[in-house]
Design a protein around this nucleic acid. Structure first.
Lengths: 252, 252
DNA sequence: ACCATACATGCAGAACCGTGCAAGAACAGG
DNA sequence: CCTGTTCTTGCACGGTTCTGCATGTATGGT
């Protein structure tokens, strides 16, 4: 039995049963309890489970499935998310896009921050369950599988009924000419609808997206307040955007 | 049974019932009252419950922890969920309630089932992401933290625009006189709105809920098609319901 | 005031944990 | 192909934590 295989088995078991008992799974797989404990310790270190006396429990039952498949957010995204989280004012209202970067923003928010979060992502909504002071409003609609967010006419319509101080948007491309782009027209429309409902809109773009473009335009640069990125300090694309009046927030 | 799991169970019980009686829960879980008392003392030390003579009470009436609820009675719920999943027809439309039992239904659905699922639970929506053939429609609204579902006026309104063949509802109490009940009035209204949009409504009730009642009525028995439960074969409550024309689907 | 029940405490046995260690597998370099 | 290195795995050991029981005390009802 491969180590990675064992890890997968543990995560699957955790998702299915809601718990892991070290002794039982060791017997089941025919390996020592020590190995199970070591694996559980590692998984807990990555935030994929919660170690308890005798075994392990899901870290947060609702999102464990998602986490198991979604590797931990890479460093760049975490840094971008931390800067973005700093823009959120206590008591304010935040429109939060879907995607892994947005999920990282949730994790970067103080646990007890009191604010209103409006989102079209069930994943984000589920992740916010352990922020007891956060008021969450979910925009419903047809769920687009590939991005795991609500889109379409119903979702855009639902967005018309909200407003916020700040909107944090993820995109897949940031290109001097193409502007801010994403890969799906429905998603692009939804992002536009979200941005239109906030006083300020900041775009989250980890470095690998700078200079690339996808097929569908979300917004021109003129319509956003700023860009949050971990790109190199003197990236030519970034400097060009700064010259065009886009506020640039760099991670350090 | 893991110690941490036991603690979760206590918190869940506290959230659901509003109180804990040390003697009862000790008997139920097959552990000594001393362990229960020790757990309650610890929980009280962390401010998660209020210790009283004979058991414990919520520290404040509103304290309900969704996460704690995940650990309750996974076995009975899985069986109930399996039966419920069997009612879902390929190509059909299903309205699925929130809650752990409903989550278990998702896990019990064939991975490649093609159907439409309408839900007001972001957790359910997120869980359905790995059913590639399932079309998911999410009903938006204000997220109620304690049950992790969208409720309130917006959610009820959104429900008016859908319809389905089958609705699977969870409840917290099934009582001959009180009917089908739950602990929150908004949730009760939402469940009613969901049931009204489906041709058939089946209620999922694992055995520990039979014979109990919560404060808010969801529906009278006359308005549901059937009840799915893992209660004992000749449970008096169940037999009474059957006599009143409620279709009873038992797990085996 | 009395009694039944619930409680805290101490204790012993059991279960669980981390660490160190050695045997073996995987692997890179010669 | 051999050898040294690194990583993994299982085992042994000592320490920690948990659990149920016994004891004596406190509490609430009658």
């Amino acid at each position: 039995m491969l180590a990675a295989e064992r890890r997968d088995h543990l995560l699957a078991l955790l998702a299915r049963e809601g718990k892991i008992i070290a002794k039982d799974v060791a017997a089941e797989l025919g390996i020592s309890e020590d190995s199970v404990r070591r694996d559980l310790r590692d998984l807990a270190g990555e935030g994929l489970c919660q170690r308890v006396y005798g075994g392990a429990l899901p870290v947060s039952p609702a999102v464990v499935d998602y986490h198991a498949r979604q590797a931990v957010a890479p460093d760049g995204k975490r840094k971008v998310a931390a800067v973005a989280a700093g823009l959120v004012r206590p008591g304010g209202a935040l429109i939060l896009d879907g995607g892994t970067t947005a999920l990282a923003v949730v994790h970067a928010l103080p646990q007890d921050l009191a604010c209103t979060v409006i989102t079209h992502s069930p994943t984000i909504a589920a992740a916010l369950l352990d922020h007891p002071q956060a008021e969450v409003f979910l925009l419903g609609g047809r769920i687009f599988k590939h991005s795991a967010v609500a889109c379409g006419a119903a979702a855009v319509e639902a967005a018309q009924n909200v407003s916020a101080d700040l909107c944090l948007l993820g995109v897949t491309g940031v290109h001097p000419e193409a502007g801010l782009t994403t890969g799906d027209p429905e998603e692009a429309a939804m992002k536009r609808a979200l941005a239109a409902r906030a006083a300020d809109t900041y775009v989250l773009a980890s470095s690998e997206k700078i200079g690339t473009a996808s097929r569908f335009r979300v917004l021109p640069f003129e319509e956003i307040s700023g860009l949050i990125t971990d790109a190199a300090p003197h990236d030519p694309v970034i400097e060009q955007l700064a010259a065009r009046g886009v506020e640039i927030l760099m991670t350090d």
